[in-house]
Amino acid sequence: MSRGSLVRGGLFVLVLATLPSFGLQHWFLNLMVFVLMFATMSSAWNLVGGFAGYPSLGHAAFFGIGAYSMALIFHGHVLSNGYEPFLLLPLIGLISAAVGFPIALIAMRTRADVFAIVTITFLFMVQTLAFNLRGWTGGSQGLSLPVAPFPAVSFEEPFYYTLVLLLCFTLLVTFGALRSKVGLSLVAVRADEDKARGIGVRVTGVKVLAFCVSVGITAMVGGVWAYYETFIYPQFAIDPLITIAVVLMTFLGGRATLWGPVLGAFVLEAGQQTLAYRLGGSQFYLIAYALVFLVIMLLLPRGVLPTLGDRLRQRRRARSVDSTSGGVTPMAAGAAEPPVALRRGASA
């Protein structure tokens, strides 16, 4: 498994890193920038929503906090080489993690439902504040950032590579979590939090850690987005649809897997950008979104990767059983499901 995922990861990074050198058109690079944003955010959401089983509905708020931090730092400044905002991203991540820390500490004392309630309420509160604190955020007038002084020919590339780095960082964090005690603790929390606490897992610690890392990464993506857009408004920077998109992508690809959220983001964000271009009006697009979501939840609640992985494993096992004894039915072999942790590990 280790060598396989190493090869897969290396290939993925290689393809992403060399992609712009093929002389791609601007629309495609622009699309890739958004795909990478959502792939990073979905992978980050996966740490809390997937592994720990605490569905945060407030990640869009942290995206917005990152975007507004970036805008507030650089509003009215003149950039020299254009790379300063990227260098400040870790700071923005830390600020947002610090904002998320007390919220996680309080919200995670209770069950997952209440956690979802607190995070979604936080989302709408931050949005209202962004509208109302006109002195800082400019209210609905929005806030401008300096335009990046990159040459028009390769304007998207710095953003693209920054996001590739962010995505790799997130995937490495996830990979590390998968293979460490922290990841195991998170899975234990999702399976049965009380029992996990009972056998000595530091439940609160790992949950809060996962949340802070997750929202920190999300805020960094928000910062890149703000710099890319150069003008941000409350309704777009803090949009419930961002939350729903991230959740949907993670669910589509497969929760609590390494590649699931990335797959989901590549499929859905590419589809969404195309759809938005074709349909234009945002209302149809809202309905399409809701319907895709409902279909995935009802028909494929575990996501593509875990479902496919199970199919493959069942077939492989059936074949090996056939070749050894020949007598045992494949169904009986497939019915013995491996425990959650094993299954998840194998599909990563």
Binding site: I244, Q283, I287, Y289, A290, F293, L294
Partner: peptide, 15 residues
């Protein structure tokens, strides 16, 4: 799941 499904229903109604 039901939490997310009702969120989707809300979006559907809004749309």
């Amino acid at each position: 799941l039901s939490l997310l499904v009702t969120f989707a229903v809300a979006l559907l109604i809004e749309g």
